Simulated assay, not measured.
Amino acid sequence: MTILLLAVIYIAFISLGLPDALLGVGWPLMHQEFSAPLSMAGWIFMTIAGGTILSSLLSGKLLEHFDTKQVTFGSTLLTALCLFGFYWAPSIGWLFALAIPLGLGAGAVDAALNHYVAEHYEAHHMNWLHCFWGIGATGGPLVMAGVLTENGWRDGYLIIAAVQFGLALVLLLSFPLWKQKGQSISQHQETAVTTLDRKLPTGVSYALATFLLYCGVEALIGLWTSSYFVQMKQFSIATAAAWVSIYYGSITLGRFVSGFLSFRFTNKQMIRMGQSLAFLGSIFFFIPTSATMLVGLILIGFGLAPIYPSMLHDTPNRFGSAQSKRLMGYQMAFAYTGSTFLPPLFGLIVSQTSLGFLPLVTIMIMMGMLFSTERLNRIIKLNKA
């Protein structure tokens, strides 16, 4: 039964990734149909992530009233309904209206599942689960790219919505599995989580900054790379979409490999190696030739792969198990704050300058992420000395 539950959680992570890159890939056609400026994508993306921030911050309270299985099912169903709404939307205003519940659905399930896995499963499962998120994030743009030249972007949203409805049904049927697993959680652990000290641990600000920068740069690349290659490199829309899929595919493959590496290396080592590789990839991405940029995009994906799941899984070790449920929600909130503000902020820069600044901005964010992580490592080391 435990194995079946783990399989269901894997499927749930696929549902988390499916919608993430749809807007970035479809936007070159969407903004033309709606007569919207190119930079509008950043504001829609910001609205989605804003809802996610809110639900992440409230996830601790939500989990006090509902089980993880109920939060996961409800959020997946809400996401499916919103994606169907994107397919139907007659104007840009509808996209903004639907973006709010779309974000609310993503945030609660993300925080709930990550806390559940961090508490009950080993590090390799966290990497492989986020690998399944990558399968969804890779499959989404592939589906969109396949229909862009024939039936337009709307059919891409319709297909992903149908898949989400199917995943919601699987989650609903899995409720008995979650009930059995939930019985293994001790009452003492539940009490420790709900009566924790409200004072934040030392160094948590650097952890939150790292989450903000990580999700910010991941979303920035996912949202703007397609438009960058279309406008700056004169790629076709289909080719640019394929490159975005390669980026998410490298994250996916990287997390699969990271699952095996986690048997040998600690979370701290995995984070450090991943950030170093991602920084190297951003240097290659800065070199303005197609070959080096593709290599850089792949290296960035492989480098980013272990960072997020390793940071999540290390939360109880960094700050204590009693603090982890609340801090998991805070970390999710800051992660989506990065997704919320960095892409539209770059959109503002683009509207005044050029998309050509994308590689340089990527390098700067990678440097900030490295600094925040190493500063946190030093603080934790001093506290444990």
Rank of each mutant, 00 (worst) to 15 (best):
G249Q: 13
Q231D: 04
T210P: 02
V170L: 04
D155S: 08
L196D: 03
L220W: 01
I185Q: 08
D155Q: 09
R264W: 06
V163P: 00
S184C: 03
S226L: 07
I221P: 01
S174Y: 08
A207G: 10
H188F: 09
S245K: 04
G156H: 04
V217N: 02
W243K: 08
S184W: 00
I160C: 10
S258T: 10
P201G: 10
T194F: 11
I237G: 01
Q189V: 10
D197G: 13
Y228S: 02
S186Y: 02
I221S: 05
G259M: 08
Q234K: 15
Y157H: 03
S226R: 10
Q180T: 14
T194L: 15
F256N: 03
L167Y: 12
G249P: 06
V170P: 01
T252F: 05
R154T: 03
S262M: 12
S226H: 04
V244C: 09
S245P: 02
Q234N: 15
G203R: 12
L212R: 01
Q187P: 08
Y247W: 08
L223Q: 09
V204P: 02
A168F: 15
V193T: 13
G166I: 11
A162W: 03
S205K: 12
G182S: 14
G216K: 05
K233C: 04
V244H: 07
L220Q: 06
T194G: 13
I185F: 01
T195R: 07
Q164V: 07
G203A: 13
L220C: 07
Q183H: 12
L196H: 04
S226V: 13
S174D: 12
I159M: 08
E190G: 04
F256W: 04
T266N: 12
G166C: 08
G203T: 12
L208S: 09
Q234S: 15
W224Y: 05
S186N: 07
L253M: 11
Y247N: 13
A161Q: 07
G259L: 08
L208P: 07
L158W: 12
L171N: 06
I221Q: 06
G259T: 11
E190K: 09
S227Y: 05
L169H: 15
I251C: 03
S226E: 08
V163M: 06
F229P: 00
T266S: 15
S226F: 01
W178N: 01
V163D: 02
Y228N: 01
W178F: 14
V170Q: 02
D155I: 07
T194K: 15
G203Q: 12
G222Y: 00
R154V: 05
A242R: 05
I185D: 04
A238M: 03
F211N: 11
F211C: 14
G222F: 00
E218F: 06
L200N: 06
S262L: 12
A207T: 06
S262V: 14
S205G: 13
I251G: 00
D155P: 03
V163Q: 01
K179W: 04
V204Y: 06
G249F: 09
M232L: 02
F175Q: 13
F175I: 12
V163F: 03
P201M: 14
